[in-house]
Amino acid sequence: MSESATVERIELEVGQEADPRTYPKLTRTDFVKYQGASGDFHPLHHDEPFAKATGFPSVFSVGMLQAGMLATYVTDWLGVETLRRFKIRFVDQVWPDDELTCTAKVTAIADEPGGGRRVTVELRCERQTGSAALKGDAEFVLP
Rank of each mutant, 00 (worst) to 15 (best):
S2D: 12
S4Q: 12
A5H: 12
E8F: 04
I10W: 04
E11D: 12
G15C: 11
E17M: 04
E17G: 09
A18P: 06
D19K: 14
L26P: 01
R28C: 15
R28E: 10
V32M: 13
Q35S: 06
G36E: 04
G36N: 02
A37G: 05
S38E: 04
D40L: 01
P43H: 07
L44D: 01
L44E: 02
L44W: 03
H45V: 09
H45L: 12
K52R: 15
A53S: 13
G55K: 05
S58L: 13
F60D: 02
F60N: 03
S61N: 07
L70S: 11
T72S: 14
W77Y: 09
L78Y: 01
L78C: 04
G79F: 09
G79L: 01
T82F: 05
F86A: 00
K87G: 15
K87W: 14
I88Y: 13
I88R: 08
R89C: 04
R89D: 07
R89E: 13
D92N: 09
D98M: 00
C102Y: 00
A104I: 11
A108C: 13
I109T: 05
D111N: 14
D111W: 11
E112H: 03
P113D: 06
G114V: 01
R117W: 07
R118S: 13
V121Y: 05
L123E: 00
R127E: 14
T129H: 10
T129Q: 04
K135M: 15
G136W: 01
D137N: 05
D137C: 02
P143V: 09
